[in-house]
Simulated scan of single mutants.
Amino acid sequence: MIDRAPAVGFMDSGVGGLAVWREFVRLIPNAPTLYVADQAHVPYGPRSLEEIRRFAGAITRFMLDQGARLIVVASHTISAAALWPLREAFPEVPFVGIEPAVKPAVAQTRTGVIGVLGTFGTLNGPLMARVVERFARGVRVVPRVCSGWVEQVEAGLLEGEAAEALVRQHLDPVLQMGADVLVLACTHYTFLAPLIRRLIGPERALIDPTPAVARRAAEIWQARARGEELNQAEGAIHRFFTTDDPARFQEQLQRLIGRDGPVERLYWDPHEMWLTLSS
């Protein structure tokens, strides 16, 4: 393995994890980062556990080869499917994952009904079941698989009549069931948060866990930086990778978080067990 500069790695199927990346860089702007968007396989939500774990393992190996010392699984779907397998497969690597923010939602509800908006993979997995069992006793949890929202965000459809119609399709049934607190259980949905807040009004709360995940990653990175004297010079390098079209991801970076890139292209091998960087 080539000796690379230490960095923080972020993984997602697409642009959703940029919401966590943005918050992390705001907290620690001088920490070098790597961001891998597996847009060749987006969305991950309908995929099997085995597929997601295979993709996540390959992304992890690539990021470690590129110098990652901390890996942020900036996706509810990947965390639900692969966080514990990743920790078992790479015991020397600290991973920060993300889970549905049911606990704070339960603390805030007045009606006793909370809505959790996510993908099929997140809401129907064991992680969601454990979170509900631990924190939601006495509270009704309304899970809603928001099919199409990931693709909507990837396409940049965040405002306007068409965007509102797509969001209402999944939002209105949850509100009609009495939910007064909504949880975003997909990092892609963070980019729909302004629209969702406008539609639900001030009388209802919306919980976005991405800032908390970024804070946890920042705490771990700062502790490792102190212990290992990691280089955090001014003008940190941020590298972005996609397994699809770099030009498209470049446009998404600019539109969603105001970054210029550049973006590097990754390729899956024929068996989808390894990632290679284009020359």
Rank of each mutant, 00 (worst) to 15 (best):
G258S: 11
R47E: 02
P143H: 03
R144D: 07
E272W: 08
P246E: 05
M11A: 06
G57W: 00
E159Y: 13
A218G: 09
A105L: 07
L27K: 02
Y44I: 09
D260G: 15
V73G: 05
Q252P: 02
L117E: 05
T187H: 09
N30E: 15
D180R: 05
G115D: 12
F90L: 03
F191L: 07
A82Q: 01
V132L: 11
I220M: 09
F120W: 14
L18P: 11
R168V: 00
L256I: 05
R61N: 01
V167W: 06
L253F: 07
A74D: 06
G115S: 11
E251Y: 00
G235H: 07
P126F: 11
G45M: 08
G14D: 03
A136T: 04
R197N: 00
G148K: 03
Q152W: 00
T122A: 12
V102N: 03
F120V: 15
F135Q: 03
I207W: 11
R140Q: 15
A163S: 12
E161F: 00
V106S: 07
S48L: 09
H238E: 10
L86D: 06
A105F: 02
P270L: 04
G57H: 12
L123H: 06
R110Y: 02
R248I: 12
L70D: 09
V36I: 13
V142H: 05
V167Y: 07
E159M: 13
L277H: 08
D172M: 12
E23C: 12
G121W: 09
